[in-house]
């Protein structure tokens, strides 16, 4: 009964909320527009935007020396989560069955183990850093904790359901994932999409000024 609801209507509802919400948020951001820059551009903004999109993924030396752990943990978590989301066998099966109709290569056993360990370690360390460091604690709001906690719970429930033999465990994982999808567009989790906008904007602005940022 409740299982059918989670598996059926709620899944479609949450997917719709996620999709429409993300599009709505992105359009809203893009509609803000850019203030007209009357100065003569020193170079094209597009190239700078593209470069910054990737170059900002690399830590800079002074930042790196200040906090190695955040970078290591951050990379572990984000790469691990991305690999888990799109390359774990159950996920590919799910995506293939529900969304795309086709699947792709999945991670081997050892690869799955590696990325899930990395993702869990990274998330736990980052969450603790947020709690322990005075600055991050000061700037963190309830929404940040909610997002971290929700992602952690989704990952944990997924890990508990790994035997793939118990319907309640799968439904719990699915329910939490659906809650995450619904919460996603209205929270800081949107950074998964907006990072590109913000980096592109910064990069383009800097490139027009002739700054290699």
């Amino acid at each position: 009964m409740i299982g059918d609801f989670i598996d059926g209507p709620l899944w479609y509802f949450s997917a719709a909320v996620f999709l429409l919400g993300v599009i709505w948020r992105l359009i809203a951001i893009l509609r803000i527009g850019v203030t007209v820059d009357l100065s003569v551009a020193r170079s094209s903004g597009a190239g700078g935007a593209l470069r910054t999109l990737f170059s900002r993924s690399l830590p800079r030396r002074p930042v790196l020396t200040r906090g190695k752990l955040q970078f290591v943990a951050g990379y572990m978590f984000h790469l691990g989560l991305f690999a888990l989301l799109f390359l774990a066998q159950p996920h590919v099966e799910f995506i293939s069955r529900r969304i795309t109709g086709f699947g792709w290569t999945t991670l081997p056993h050892w690869g799955f183990m590696l990325v899930s360990e990395a993702a869990f370690a990274g998330l736990l360390l980052l969450l603790l850093y947020r709690l322990m460091h005075p600055v991050t604690r000061l700037i963190s709001r309830a929404g940040d904790y909610a997002a971290s906690l929700l992602v952690f719970l989704v990952m944990l429930s997924g890990c508990l359901a790994l035997a793939r033999a118990y319907e309640p465990l799968r439904l719990l994982h699915l329910l939490l994932a659906e809650l995450l999808l619904i919460y996603f567009p209205f929270s800081t989790l949107m950074h998964a999409f907006t990072f590109a906008v913000s980096r592109g904007y910064t990069g383009a602005g800097m490139a027009r000024k002739g700054v290699n940022a």
Partner: peptide
């Protein structure tokens, strides 16, 4: 070889 881990199924 079963489950997502492909180690031990039932």
């Amino acid at each position: 070889a079963d489950g997502a881990f492909a180690t031990r199924g039932k």
